[in-house]
Structures are given as structure tokens and as C-alpha cells.
Design a binder for these strands. Structure first.
Lengths: 120, 120
DNA sequence: CAGCATCCTCAACGATACTG
DNA sequence: CAGTATCGTTGAGGATGCTG
């Protein structure tokens, strides 16, 4: 069929809709936070420091958003000084595997990407 | 060890760095574009329409960025009316698999997410 | 058809300072 | 320690109109 007049594949609309990552996977910190929490609960400052450059405000906002989505639980202990721990929920842990696929891809192709970008 | 004074895991810094998706996977359109192109070359308007809501400007910008990263090739045919086709490169196709993992996760947990968000 | 030009909005992100 | 408050920046994305 003439490529100019061929109809649009209806399935393409569905395919596009399925491709939306509803979780804020794209934002700057969510993926990193999930990875940081994979080995167990972490305290606020234990997250603040390895995530070089994040500010307390942004960390708080990110954690709150992930809490709302049920990815993270916040546990505050009534101690002095105060202690708060963040941990992945079972639901949050299900993100670990697909995220690992992306991380692996990035690690494998980062050099390729750098070359291509440097060449342009 | 006292949880207050325990040292930060040095590996955590590396883990965080590995978690950065260098590709603009997070942006609003890149993942959808990759999925839209998985079955073969598409023309500008064939991408514009299924990606409901995208504007020509943003589509152009997204495609240009993906071209710079070597994910997409742009082929212009000297015809009248003009015809341009966009296709995934072999490199771009390598993204399909890890992206599918995310899409599957989203499809599986979308209802869970909707419930959690509605409850808050 | 495949875009470019122009202007605009808004939310993420950041810097700095302060507090229970 | 674990934040909050305030202010400022930035850029992705959008609206609209025009063109080779």
C-alpha cells in the first residue's frame, strides 16, 4: 500500500499507552533511591550523603512521593536524638528487577553513548 | 554496632552512581517513541498521532535528541510531498528489552498504584 | 507533509538558612 | 538527627501560527 495513505496501526495507540512508566522512574532520584534501599533500611542522612548533591528538601519530597505510592515505608522512633528509617516495601522491591535491567543496559552502553555524544 | 554511628557503606555510593539512567528514559516521550518504532520505520505524522498530546515541536526535539544519541535514524526522501521516516538503529533496538521489563512491571502494577493513590 | 518560530507555563530541582 | 521555610533557577513541555 502507498506509504503515504496507509492507515495508522490501531495497536500503535495501545502500545504507546503501555509504554508510560507511571512511576516517576524518569525523575532524577527515584531510581537511585530504590537502589540505595535495596540492601535494607536507611536513615535520612544515610540517603542524603551517597546521593551526592541532593538537598534535604528534595530528598524529603522524593521520599514522600514514594511513600504515597507505597514503595517506601517511613518508620520514626521516639528517641533522642530522633531516628527515622526508610525501607522498601514488598511492592517497592518488585521494582528492583526491571530497574536492574535498565541499569545493566546503561552500564553496558555508557561508553558507546559517550562516544556518540562526543562526536556530535 | 550502634545504628547512629555506623559508617556509611562505601559501596552505596557506587550503587547510586550505577543507577543513573543516562538515556532520557525518564522524559515524557522517549520510551513511548522507542515502543512506537519497534515494528519498523514510521513517518512524522505516524508518530505524532498515536502519541496523543505531543506537539510537533516536542516530537521534533525528542527525535533529534534520540538521533544524537544514535538510537534513531532519520531518512528524508526527495519527493513531493516530502516524506521522512524514522527508524530504530540496531543500538536503539537494544533498548527494547530492558524497556519491556519496565512496561511489564507497569502493566502488572498499575491497578495497585491507582488504588494506593486514590486512597490518599 | 514535515517541520520551524515565538512565546509561555509550570514543576522539578537547587541554595541557603533555620528548628524541634 | 531529621527535617522545614523561603526564594530562585532551569528546562521540558505546551499553544499557536506560519512555511518550503
Amino acid at each position: 500500500m502507498d506509504p503515504v495513505t496507509r492507515p495508522l496501526d490501531p495497536d500503535l495507540f495501545a502500545a504507546c499507552d503501555d509504554a508510560r512508566p507511571m512511576i516517576r522512574i524518569g525523575d532524577k532520584w527515584t531510581t537511585k533511591l530504590v537502589v540505595c534501599l535495596r540492601d535494607g533500611p536507611r536513615r535520612f542522612n544515610e540517603l542524603l550523603r551517597p546521593l551526592r548533591g541532593i538537598t534535604p528538601k528534595v530528598l524529603t519530597e522524593s521520599l514522600r512521593a514514594m511513600e504515597r505510592d507505597g514503595l517506601v515505608v517511613r518508620t520514626a522512633y521516639a528517641e533522642n536524638p530522633p531516628r527515622v528509617e526508610y525501607a522498601l516495601t514488598p511492592f517497592g522491591r518488585t521494582l528492583l528487577e526491571p530497574l536492574a535491567a535498565i541499569c545493566t543496559w546503561t552500564a553496558q552502553h555508557q561508553s558507546t553513548l559517550n562516544e556518540v555524544r562526543a562526536a556530535s
